[in-house]
Nucleic acid binder design. Structure first.
Lengths: 155, 155
DNA sequence: ATCAACTTGACAGTATCCTGTCATAATGGT
DNA sequence: ACCATTATGACAGGATACTGTCAAGTTGAT
């Protein structure tokens, strides 16, 4: 009799705990990384989205998979700190464009340089195949979890 | 010439994004799961820790890897909702013990039953070997990230 | 026994995410 | 041209995490 793959609930639980833990560690690392230029994970991730061209808040939110309002808060903070500025949008009167200021550009450059070094430190010695396999597995689980949530809410 | 495993920064970035996405999906799923009995992910996870015996807030926080103060807020909310109650601790006058009330027990039972079904739905068809391999990889990355953060803060 | 160090809960403040709601701007079908 | 729908920013409020600080309880070294 051939056993169909059927993981114990425990295998999944362990993976979930590992995801929670890594998530926390990554956010903390991101905060440390941007701290010298006054950026947090949330803030430099927003800057990264408008790096190659201005965009309205709602567009950035969609790109990042966050609520419009969350990004709005972050963006307002970035404006207060002078890292971005809002400019009129020729195509939409309400949806002002978020633009990097020189100060924002400088801060983002710093973070990206730090991030490159960090990736190098973290990644050396890891097997690229395993990384890609794990990434694929996580995606497939995300898809299942999201679909399951969606199905339940429909029923 | 044998290539030493040396992942592109991109492989790591992709894994990080997958972790963020799955983390979000899991929290949302946990919230949905406990909603019928008024529990969120954060709350039933706390209940789970004191399931097999009362414990003070600080102990629960250590178990969960959270700050004492975060669990305190959750615990106070659980007490307001009548799911736990604080009892005097014979071994420590300040550190009151968090105890499940019957109402809390009932809610936790419900969540755990739901969780079992959920794990079943999510887990079927996944390869246990891959799950364990991914878990191990995530742990190893967590360890690297945490050690890296720790080293930087020391220097 | 005393005192320093640690632990604990409490309180204040902050960051980041969320939902809900509103008015205004843009869009598409009739 | 009109109107319903959708998109957007603004504002309010809540949940979950954090740090910092304080006073009180506990513990251990001397």
């Amino acid at each position: 009799m051939i056993e169909r793959p059927h993981p114990h609930a425990n295998d999944i639980t362990q993976l979930i705990l590992a995801v929670f833990r890594l998530n926390g560690a990554l956010i903390e690392a991101g905060n440390r990384l941007g701290a010298p230029v006054g950026l947090t994970s949330a803030r430099w991730q927003v800057l990264g989205v408008i790096e190659h061209g201005p965009a309205p808040v709602a567009h950035v939110a969609r790109t990042m998979g966050l609520a419009r309002q969350s990004v709005q808060q972050t963006a307002d903070a970035l404006e207060r700190d002078g890292l971005i500025e809002y400019r009129p949008n020729p195509h939409h009167r309400r949806a002002k464009l978020m633009c990097l200021t020189p100060k924002g550009r400088e801060a983002l450059d710093y973070v990206q340089a730090q991030l490159a070094e960090w990736s190098e430190r973290i990644g050396t010695g890891l097997d690229p195949e395993q990384l890609r396999a794990a990434t694929e597995l996580l995606h497939s689980i995300s898809a299942r979890v999201e679909r399951d949530s969606h199905d339940e809410e429909a029923s």
